[in-house]
Structure formats: structure tokens, C-alpha cells
């Protein structure tokens, strides 16, 4: 009975917090637009095989009779030089982009957080210097150049572009967590919990880490767009996913040769990249506003 009451209370507490969060978040119409765009993109990408009109057009498919048709009722965004439906390929391209994002972020965020928390907690020790100097090294070159170089040394493929982007991305999370942790480290509640003998791991990951989650979540949301951008850029120059795979960057690059007469082959995938980034930027900015407000 007692447990039920506590669970109920917890639920109420959580739902109150959510309501407060939602109230602040929904005050800005831009954030709502961002939420709508980004969820639509994710849903389309997840349900891609069930909603695209021509699922057989995704990889190798040739139908020269229908090649380079401008947008019409049958092919709402037209067809490319092999007669493949551009709309279907874009939706599948989003699927690949989001796969890239999920893989990269689920490698990068935990790695970055763990290294950042450890380095921040053991500030001014050899571990801190080692981790932070290594991350400085990765950050010394713009991420796009670094990712291109790593992808070039490996063989161009989907998996290797994931590796390349992950290798360039972890330092940003490590640095973000590091700065948050090293500023929280001297708060009284941390010192108290150390004094009463709470284990170091618990202090780091249970007492300190939850307080840094806001900025990390914001950055993760904004990064969805940027990771898609870097992935598309890699395949745009030919160092990412290779042609039969409907990657958005590859599609833009292939279509760029056909400009200006058959503009729809490259402009629509390019706009799709823009819309995804726009959606997640708006969403991330909305989250940032909510989290920075809560701080003060």
C-alpha cells in the first residue's frame, strides 16, 4: 500500500516536472516547429519501407524509359538518371542518415561523458592532462577536415564513415562534460558526500553527472543535424557511403552533374538535409532555452 502511494507520488512529481518543462518549451513557436519537423523526419525514416511508393528503386534499379522525369503525380519529386523515384530514395536516405546519427551518438556520448567526468573529477592530475591534450589535438583541425582525412585513410564505406565521424566527435562531449564537472566539483554537496565516504564512482556518476545532463542533451539534439551534415559531406565528396546506397550526400553529388536542366535530382535531397538540420536546430535551441532558464 505504502509503496503504491510512493510510486503514485513519484509519478505525479515526474508528470509535474514534465508539465513545467512542456510549458516553458511550448512558449516558443519555433521550438514547436522544430519538434514537429524532427519527429516527422524520424517517423518517416523509421517507417520508410512501408510508406515509400517504390521500395524497389532504392539500390540497383534501371528503367531508362522513365529516367529524368520532372516531378509529376506518379513520381512526386521526379526520377533520377536511372529512372529511380527520387522521393523514395530520399526517404531511405533519411533512414541511412539517422542510422549514422544513432550509431555515432551512441558511441560518442558515453565515451565523451565518461572521459569528461573522469578528467573533470581528477582535475589537475596526469589523467586530466592526458585526456584533455588528446582532445585538444582532435579539435585542432575543423571536424569536417578530420573526418574526411580519417575516412580517406580507411576505405570509403558506411561503417568507416561512422568510425571517422565518431573519432572526430567524442572530444566535444568530453570537453563539455569536463567543464561542467570541474565547475561542480567544489560544490558543498559534493564535498559532503565525499566526507561521509561515498565511493568516488558514485560521486562522479550519481551525484555530479545528472546535473550536467541538460547541456549534454541540448548538444546531442543539435548534433543530430551536424552529424547528418558531416555524413552527407563525406559521401558528397565520395568518401562515405558508396553509390547504390541512397545516401543524401551521394544523391546530391550524383545530381550535381545534371544541373541545371534536371535540377530535382540534386536539389530535393539537398533541401532534405537542410530541413532535417533546421528541425533539430530549432528543437535544440528550444531545449537550450528551457535548460538555461532552469539554471538561474
Amino acid at each position: 500500500m505504502n509503496e503504491l502511494v510512493i510510486t503514485g507520488r513519484r509519478f505525479r512529481l515526474l508528470s509535474d516536472r514534465f508539465k513545467k518543462f512542456w510549458f516553458k518549451f511550448s512558449r516558443s513557436s519555433l521550438s514547436i516547429i522544430g519538434l514537429i519537423i524532427s519527429t516527422t523526419c524520424v517517423i518517416l525514416a523509421v517507417l520508410a519501407p512501408y510508406i515509400v511508393p517504390y521500395p524497389e528503386h532504392i539500390e540497383w534499379y534501371i528503367d531508362y524509359d522513365n529516367a529524368l522525369r520532372p516531378p509529376n503525380l506518379e513520381h512526386i519529386l521526379g526520377t533520377d538518371q536511372y529512372g529511380r523515384d527520387v522521393f523514395s530514395r530520399i526517404i531511405f536516405g533519411m533512414r541511412y542518415s539517422f542510422t549514422l546519427v544513432v550509431v555515432v551518438l551512441s558511441i560518442v556520448i558515453p565515451t565523451g561523458i565518461v572521459l569528461g567526468v573522469l578528467a573533470g573529477y581528477f582535475k589537475d592530475t596526469w589523467f586530466d592532462y592526458l585526456i584533455m591534450r588528446i582532445s585538444d589535438t582532435f579539435v585542432a583541425v575543423p571536424p569536417l577536415v578530420m573526418a574526411l582525412a580519417i575516412a580517406a585513410v580507411l576505405k570509403p564505406s558506411m561503417i568507416n564513415s561512422m568510425i571517422a565521424v565518431s573519432l572526430t566527435w567524442w572530444p566535444w562531449y568530453a570537453r563539455l562534460t569536463y567543464s561542467a564537472v570541474s565547475s561542480l566539483k567544489n560544490e558543498y554537496y559534493i564535498i559532503y558526500s565525499e566526507v561521509i565516504g561515498v565511493s568516488k564512482l558514485r560521486v562522479m556518476f550519481v551525484e555530479i553527472l545528472p546535473n550536467c545532463i541538460g547541456p549534454i542533451l541540448t548538444k546531442a539534439t543539435l548534433d543530430v543535424g551536424w552529424v547528418i551534415l558531416v555524413g552527407a559531406a563525406l559521401s558528397f565528396v565520395g568518401l562515405g557511403a558508396q553509390p547504390p546506397i541512397p545516401d543524401l550526400g551521394t544523391m546530391v553529388a550524383e545530381g550535381a552533374h545534371l544541373l541545371p536542366t534536371t535540377w530535382w535530382v540534386s536539389i530535393f535531397p539537398a533541401l532534405t538535409i537542410t530541413i532535417i538540420i533546421l528541425g533539430f536546430n530549432l528543437l535544440g535551441d528550444g531545449l537550450k532555452d528551457v535548460f538555461t532558464e532552469e539554471k538561474y
Binding site: 533541401l271 538535409i273 537542410t274 533546421l278
Partner: peptide
């Protein structure tokens, strides 16, 4: 900001 530079370039 959301439009990547290479998309700007193509457009």
C-alpha cells in the same frame, strides 16, 4: 545556418 555550405554552393 541549417543549410550546409555545399548546398548553398549548388543552389
Amino acid at each position: 545556418i541549417s543549410m550546409p555550405a555545399f548546398v548553398w554552393a549548388i543552389i
